[in-house]
Design a protein around this nucleic acid. Structure first.
Lengths: 234, 234
DNA sequence: GTATTTGAGTGTATGAATGACACCATGTCA
DNA sequence: TGACATGGTGTCATTCATACACTCAAATAC
């Protein structure tokens, strides 16, 4: 899929009177597994950066909007569908890709493990794996910077939006919700204050059911008050 | 500068094996004049949308990064230089430009009137004018949506950053600073609380000078504590 | 069957930040 | 010299954020 043509007089069927950059989308997809914040990466099979790990992503088709492109690439390369995407930033350094000028519109996403557990490598990628965000492998292109910015944004949004519910299953306990916050923020929160806030903002509705877990008291189950959208709170 | 070629087999010297979109930057440059928040627009001379008003902007060159492109286009089309730019959002709807696929990386900027007062139309633009943001003319492309988003972001950033100082001259009174906040937010602020906050955050340094104005008590002059950068506060 | 373990669940008190509010000061100009 | 216009200042009440400790309910080990 990646071409290496550049400049005047190169072979190719798509011609323009002025140089056009290639445009891609890249997706930083986060989930939480075993109390760790993880990100989905694909191993590059071909140069440049063969063997290094990269964000899933790819070239924008002529008739699709950017978000559709991100969703499509994510589905093609990893099999993951239907996640909540938010545009992060557009990276346009002329030298970020050694082949040709590539401008990348980065998106980030959060999804519950159950929805991404079946991720499998697509035809474009040699392999696919989840990495803890504090133990990243060697990264291709400027994807280290992309991930850093995505993390920063994600953590900021936890505070003033309901984005965390994107990573929750349909039914969850307040303890599980707090664990998600703590995992993403990388710090412990006070249990009573956390519960107070969540309830005060009306972010959850009790289901009247209990989750029975081994070796401890059952916990009340809740659902997100507005699971379909991300609200700004405060 | 705008070409209309599209798709396979069109004439043109720059050829690629896959279709490439055109990429532009557009700049929403705000200033404050006579107590109104105004935005700089250029009148389109050529179709599409000939006669409509548009944000200054243009195509990304092969070897410039996106922010440089925005600065260059702003200088070329309006003569305005050296303003603080922040990336806003990337607009990529396939039909936002009727000629060909054009993806636009939008930036916004704030500058003091004195630095933009000499803005003059460059070769690309038929004419150039400032419009109050609540009295915009007919706009080309999706520039109405771009401006709406820029305004939203600007207002949000007033609250938690020092972005307002970008629009202040080197010396200013606290009354003038408050007027800027009120103009951008579109609402009145309490004078004492405003001054308390500004001082509490250490955002300004007194210069020990006075501004003598006709018909009223002279006001102490201040300068921004960190005029060169935009800080996040709170 | 009793003790232990593990997370579930709950309230209060304190300090900080926010927001509402009114008057006198100092200059110009008529 | 009086009217006018903006400059400049402090307090109080409320709200919000934070720190903090114990009992409850189930499962399991002994």
């Amino acid at each position: 899929m990646n071409d290496t043509s550049k400049g005047p007089s190169s072979a190719g069927r798509y011609c323009y009177p002025h140089p056009h950059p290639a445009v891609t989308t890249d997706i930083a997809l986060f989930t939480i597994r075993d109390g760790r914040l993880e990100i989905l990466l694909v191993r590059r099979a071909a140069p440049p950066h063969a063997g290094a790990w990269a964000l899933p992503g790819g070239f924008v088709e002529p008739d699709e909007c950017l978000e559709d492109c991100a969703l499509r690439e994510l589905a093609e390369e990893t099999g993951v569908k239907g996640v909540y995407l938010e545009q992060l930033y557009t990276f346009g350094d002329p030298r970020r890709d050694p082949r040709e000028r590539v401008i990348s519109v980065a998106y980030y996403a959060l999804a519950p493990l159950q929805r991404v557990a079946g991720a499998v490598a697509g035809s474009d990628a040699a392999a696919l794996a989840w990495f803890a965000v504090d133990a990243l492998p060697e990264l291709a292109f400027d994807h280290g910077a992309v991930i850093a910015r995505a993390l920063e944004r994600l953590r900021a949004k936890l505070d003033y939006s309901t984005i965390a519910f994107q990573v929750m299953p349909r039914k969850f306990t307040l303890g599980e919700l707090q664990e998600v916050y703590e995992t993403i923020l990388g710090e412990a929160l006070d249990k009573r204050n956390f519960r107070k806030r969540v309830q005060a903002f009306g972010l959850v509705h009790p289901l009247g059911e209990m989750r029975r877990a081994a070796g401890r008291r059952p916990a009340a189950l809740y659902r997100a008050a507005h699971p379909e959208r991300v609200d700004i709170i405060k």
